[in-house]
Each structure stands twice: as structure tokens, then as C-alpha cells.
Design a protein around this nucleic acid. Structure first.
Lengths: 198, 198
DNA sequence: CCCCAACTTGGACAACTGTCCCAGACGCTT
DNA sequence: AAGCGTCTGGGACAGTTGTCCAAGTTGGGG
């Protein structure tokens, strides 16, 4: 059989786990199921990972990183702060709608991380990363549109994450993309009201 | 041993499952673990439920109902729409902070329901209930404060649910109640801006 | 008083789980 | 050609899982 380096196998297994969880849920992510999805023998699993938890830690990091990169393009300046915010949010939304499994996986991982000591802190760091990214995006938008926020960026970042998270979950449940975009647009308008020209 | 009617046993098992999932996560909710928590022999499980899925269906319905009742007190009118909205949200928040496990359980159930055909529709109905409750609350608030919403209540209800959901998840991860209240207050002010005197 | 339906219970089952071992095959270095 | 670390893959392990039985016990209605 095709010989694969341990590093490549790790990557294959992580991607396979991602696919399995996205399609069949966290409970289906057994070592055997993951190996089958990756086309690897069962023993390859513990040749590459000390335990299943180790796989999950890496899965979380990789998924969060992928998500951050996906929205790294980030700021889209079009006219005023209102339009720019709306456009930026819509752009972000496009990445979610294009890969909802990613969010399904994160949902499962978050729940799992709350009770698995080996994953403690992973979820927290994941959300801190969200908040940092959101804060950066908001600052960049304000700069580009020559306005200042009338609330601390950290608080606004938190509000942004709350909205994106909420919209994502609602979409995962009812799969109504129009409602999602409508909600995002409305919030963009609201948040844009929290600026003053500088 | 104390003889218990099948109906009571069902209730005991559902409550036990709730406690187990809230404290140890969805993965820990095995039939044996649930029965142990309920102080019932393993065989009692399948005397009361045809399968584990049936238990989960009932758990979801009971949990959603409990949540709806908890926030049924609902509307708190104090001064203008802004203050009333804020107070109502804070009141809701108190119920979440008092019983975060309920939200942990719902998180797990939602993820599970996405992939279990026997639970398909349960999550959707759960969210529809949220939206209805939110719409009712918003209408009542507007009435009490003699204002009208400048957007359709359905859309506002969706926004409310998005916010409450997002705040809840953020809290479950970082357990920062101050940040949660601050975020809620900010959103209350924003939403209050979407009214005009009637 | 007795009997039948409702309830209890320990044990068993086959399937599945995470993890591990070990003999073998590969391919790079010397 | 020979050696050696890297990778393969089948099989096995002990434990856990959901589910089910068949034999028991109970208490209220005839």
C-alpha cells in the first residue's frame, strides 16, 4: 500500500475526523470510523496519535485556524461604515454557508470540550481568538471609514461574536439562509449607529 | 424496593439524564449511567422507554418546556421601552445564570438532533418555540410602553433569539457573567432604537 | 383470599469501543 | 548488498454499550 509519512497521516486522520463529525455528528467519530474515512488501518491511529483526545485537540486547532483564515480576507470597504459592515458580514456569512459542517464540528467540539479535562482551555482560547479577530476587523473598518466607535472595541467585538454565533446556530437548525442574511443586515445597521465621525 | 409507577419512573429517568448531561456531557449519558443517577436498575430503562432515543425526545421536550416556563414571567415594564427591554433581558439572564446546565443540555441535544433522524424536527420545533416566545414578549413590551416596532416583530424576534443564544454560548465557554450582562444591556439599547412612539 | 396486571430485578447477549502488540514490508543510508 | 528506522496491517485485549429476557414480587379488585 501507499506508504505515507506519519505527519501526512496525522493530517489525513484529522481531515477524516472533520468529515465524519460534520456529516454524522460527534458520536459517530470513533477511531474505526475515522480510519475508514481516511482509508487507513486502525492501528495507524495510535501510531500517529497517543489517544483520541490528542486528535480532538488538533482537530479543534486546525478548524479554528481554518475559520480564521477563511475570514482573514475580512474587511470590505464600500461607502460608509454601514454598508462596509454589512458587506463584511455578508462576506463572512458566505464562508459559513459554503461550509456549514465546519460549524457543526465546532458545535460538537465546544460541547465536548466543556467536560473533557484534556480539552479544557481549548474552547476558551478558541473564543478569545474570535474576539481578537472581531476587534481587529472592527478597528480596521472604523479606520477605513474615518469614524470612531462610541463603545470600547472589546465590547463591540463581543457583540459581534454573539451575533455571528447566534446566526450560525439558528442557520444550522432551520437552514434558512435568507433569514440569516436579513438578521445580519439588521445588526450591521444597528452597530453602524454606534459610531461618530472622527 | 419502593414500587414506582411507570410514569413516575419515566420522569425520574428524564431528570436523571438531564443531570448527567449537564454535569458530564452528552457522551456520559449512557443507559447505565442514567439509571444509576436515578437509583433505578438498568432493566427499568427499557421497561419505561422503547429506546434511548425515546428518552432523548422526551428530554428535549421537557427541557424546552421548562425553559419556556422559566421565562414566562417575562415582561418587566420599568419606564421607557429601553429600560423595560433591558430589565426583561436581565430577568431572562438570571434564569440562565441560575441554571447553566439547562443550556449545556440543550447544546448537546441540538448537536445530537442534527444527525439522529428520530430527533429530526425536534430541534426545529424547539427554535420555533423560541421565536414565538420572543415575538410575544416584544409585542407585549411595545404595547406596555406605547411604542411600535419599526421592523416586523418576526424579524426582531429572530434577532432577540440570536442574541440570547450567542450570549448563552459565550457564557458557557468563558463563564464571565459581567460581560454577558454588559452585552445584553448594549443590545437592549440598540433594539430600543427600533421603535417609534405610537 | 386469591389472582392478574403492573412493576422489579439480576443477569445475559452481541456488538462495539479505545488501545495495544508484533511480525512483516518498505525505502533510505552506508 | 546489507542494515535500520519508518510505516503497515491484521488480529487481539478488556471494557462498555444498548437491548432484552425470564423469573420474581407486589398490591388492589373480584
Amino acid at each position: 500500500m501507499a506508504r505515507v509519512s506519519a505527519a501526512d497521516r496525522r493530517r489525513q486522520l484529522v481531515e477524516a475526523a472533520f468529515r465524519v463529525i460534520g456529516a454524522e455528528g460527534f458520536a459517530a467519530a470513533t477511531t474505526r470510523r475515522i480510519c475508514a474515512e481516511a482509508g487507513a488501518p486502525v492501528a495507524a491511529f495510535h501510531y500517529c496519535f497517543a489517544s483520541k483526545s490528542e486528535l480532538f485537540v488538533e482537530l479543534t486547532e486546525v478548524t479554528v485556524a481554518a475559520l480564521r483564515d477563511a475570514q482573514a480576507g475580512g474587511v470590505h470597504v464600500v461607502g460608509g461604515i454601514g454598508e462596509s459592515l454589512r458587506e463584511t458580514l455578508r462576506q463572512w456569512w458566505a464562508t459559513v454557508e459554503a461550509a456549514p459542517e465546519r460549524e457543526v464540528v465546532l458545535t460538537g467540539l465546544t460541547h465536548h470540550a466543556m467536560h473533557e479535562p484534556s480539552l479544557a482551555g481549548v474552547a476558551r482560547r478558541q473564543y478569545e481568538a474570535y474576539h481578537r479577530t472581531a476587534a481587529t476587523t472592527l478597528s480596521a473598518l472604523a479606520d477605513a471609514c474615518a469614524v470612531t466607535w462610541t463603545l470600547p472595541v472589546e465590547q463591540l467585538a463581543r457583540m459581534l461574536v454573539v451575533v455571528t454565533d447566534g446566526v450560525t446556530i439558528a442557520y444550522l437548525v432551520d437552514r434558512d439562509p435568507d433569514a440569516a442574511v436579513r438578521t445580519l443586515d439588521a445588526f450591521a445597521r444597528l452597530l453602524a449607529g454606534l459610531t461618530s465621525p472622527s
